[in-house]
């Protein structure tokens, strides 16, 4: 599904992603952990197509197509979704309206006709229930005046509505209270399927108790320095990153 080979990228002349490799197959859940500033959000933004990041090398293929050639909207229409670490507020743009436009543009891209009003309402209701998002939030301007946790939940709500094939969740768990964490994780689990994959970026093993990953990777200084199964997350929780940094220096 997603194949990243030796990716190099940066911003403002500074290289941040320094030879990154990752293979994500359909249905898999990959967790990426790593110290602050190691490049996790940069990687997410580069994959989503943010234009101020410059890719200086490597290849990314998504379902066999060259992802790096696509505009952000085409990536989304091809099935990529990024839940932002810091979702922004967009006053005056209603959540529901923009999601409807998004769905219809994605459908048009796939040669499908616009969604019927009643089907759309049904979809919204169903997905709201899935992430237990209050109806009033869905109708408001995008994230405007939302609490930190509500913003994160809104990201997952949008993901549920848009039904991507690959979702990157950038620290969706940070800022969530214990109940919200469980609700969001349940929402993700319900969306897990044989043809949908997840890249879950997190600092905390706790999330991975709920969303059990197939692989755990450690990103350090722009590249993956260690990979393992879910037990790697437990080890990191216990020992921190120092031992890994040391290994990198010694290698």
């Amino acid at each position: 599904m997603l194949s990243i080979k030796n990716l190099r990228a940066g911003i403002e002349g500074k290289e941040i992603i320094k030879g990154f490799n990752l293979e994500v197959k359909a249905g898999e859940v990959h967790a990426i952990m790593g110290p602050n500033g190691s490049g996790k959000s940069t990687l997410s933004n580069v994959l989503a197509g943010r234009e101020d990041y410059i890719v200086s090398g490597g290849e990314v293929s998504f379902n066999g197509k060259n992802l790096l050639d696509m505009s952000p909207e085409v990536r989304a229409r091809e099935g990529l979704f990024l839940a932002f670490q810091y979702p922004i507020e967009i006053p005056g743009v209603s959540n529901i309206n923009f999601l409807k436009t998004a769905i219809n543009e994605i459908r048009a891209y796939k040669g499908l006709k616009s969604i019927e009003a009643k089907d759309f309402l049904k979809l919204i209701k169903e997905k709201q229930a899935l992430v237990e998002l209050q109806g009033s939030l869905a109708g408001r301007s995008v994230n405007e005046g939302f609490s930190g946790g509500e913003k994160k939940r809104n990201e997952i709500f949008q993901m549920a509505v848009l039904e991507p094939t690959l979702a990157i969740l950038d620290e969706t768990d940070s800022g969530l209270d214990i109940d919200a964490l469980r609700i969001v994780a349940n929402g993700v689990n319900k969306l897990r399927s044989a043809d949908r994959s997840f890249v879950v970026i997190t600092h905390y093993q706790r999330l991975l108790d709920y969303i059990v990953p197939d692989f755990v990777h450690v990103l350090y200084d722009g590249k993956i320095v260690k990979s393992g199964g879910k037990e790697l997350a437990l080890e990191l929780e216990e020992k921190g990153y120092d031992w890994i940094k040391k290994e990198v220096v010694e290698a």
Partner: peptide, 16 residues
């Protein structure tokens, strides 16, 4: 630009 990117990342074309 941040808002523009946010909307595009959800599948909206740049014009809309």
């Amino acid at each position: 630009e941040d808002a523009l990117f946010y909307l595009r990342a959800r599948g909206l074309g740049i014009e809309s």
